Amino acid sequence: MTWWDSLNPSSRLLAIALAAPLTVLNAWALSKIFGYFQSLFIILLTSSLLAFLLNYPVRWFEKRGLKQGQAAVLVFLVAILLVSGLGVTLLPLVLTQAQQLIARLPEWLDSGRQQLLTLDDRVNAIGLPINLDGLAEQLNAQLIRELQLITRQALNLTLSLTVFTVVRTLDVLLTIVLTFYLVQNSPIIWRSLIQWLPTRLQIPFSQTLQSSFQNYFFGQVISATCMGLGLTSVFLLLKVPFGLLFGLTIGFMALVPFGGSVGIATVTLLVALQNFGLAFQVLAVALIVQQIVENFIAPRVLGTVTGLNPFWVFVSLLAGARVGGLLGIVVAVPIAVVIKEILIAVRSSHHGDSSSHPPLPPAIETVEKVDEKRLQSSGVSGQE
């Protein structure tokens, strides 16, 4: 920063002009490296995220007297049992409803066309200058093309599912093993990584990264779970066709910012093909549940989840999707929060803000103390 302040405006412009192509070249090189080692990066990142989430119940059990290794084994086994139970009980029902939906889509498309024609007759009887006949024909043709595309993709997915399972079995096993290892040794591994940073940045970076990922993931998981369970229950009470599939689909899409709104719109359009009145009920109920979850439940549990402007959330999601696909979307927002906090810290230090960093929140401070006790009990120093 001192060097930058010593430059005149023309020198600064020249420095930016020289740095810009080098930055683009480095980004291109990193993208090529990521593409070459994509499978390895996905395994490492997925294992790290799973270990990050499982580490919280491990610490909860540690506070109640269990040793770190015993707590890690217990939490890991419980997580595997829960996932296996959901896969055996809930997943077959969802897949069955998805197959039934695809089979009934032609019938729903014809029903939607008939409803538009009926609405067109009523509009003409009133005397309004609106013609819905052409809209019905265009909508019907477009939906038929989309249906054919979805059917082909579903068939291709069914045919390649066996091959995918065989090929990716090793990756899944590696992810499980690596997750278990990270859950057991995460404090030591994390300390060895942040020691590469300057000393004055280690604690602020660790605090910011942990709090941003914690708030984001737990906020999204809580919101998605509440929306999925709430909408599924309401849809079943309203006797919405494929209510289980629709409710869980919206809940799953709510794991990503703006995903819940997209899921609600998609489900509403599908239900509207069969019954306009029921579609309005679905839309109203879904919006009410969404507002309750986003404005009352999630903020009360974790407060502000990201602290980012919605515009930057959207930009980070697009960038994450372009770089890393689905996994990039998952980690895009918390990484953007970390970048934002780093830029704020750099700007504060640049303006001569010599104030110390704010104290750690109680949860994070407790975590740091637990990690320190782990290292002391295991006889491993920070340098090691």
Rank of each mutant, 00 (worst) to 15 (best):
T304V: 14
V221Y: 03
D371S: 05
P362Q: 05
L50W: 03
S84I: 01
S211A: 05
I194D: 09
V380E: 00
L170I: 09
L14W: 14
P362I: 07
Q70H: 10
I33N: 13
Y36W: 02
P21G: 03
G219Y: 02
Q210L: 15
D171N: 00
A332S: 01
A15W: 11
K373A: 15
T179E: 07
Q68D: 14
T306D: 07
S212I: 05
S349D: 15
G87F: 13
L197S: 01
I222N: 00
A51S: 09
G87M: 13
G87L: 11
H351F: 13
L81H: 03
G247V: 07
A20T: 05
T175F: 00
F217Y: 06
Q142E: 13
N55P: 07
L327Y: 09
S356R: 02
R122L: 13
G228I: 07
T2Q: 15
D120Q: 06
E372V: 04
I150Q: 08
I264T: 05
Q153C: 07
A284R: 05
R322I: 14
W28D: 03
L209V: 01
F37M: 12
F52P: 02
G65C: 07
L197N: 10
L119D: 07
S354V: 15
L269K: 10
L86P: 03
D171M: 06
D110Y: 12
R145Q: 13
L18F: 08
F276V: 13
S84Y: 13
I33M: 14
G247D: 00
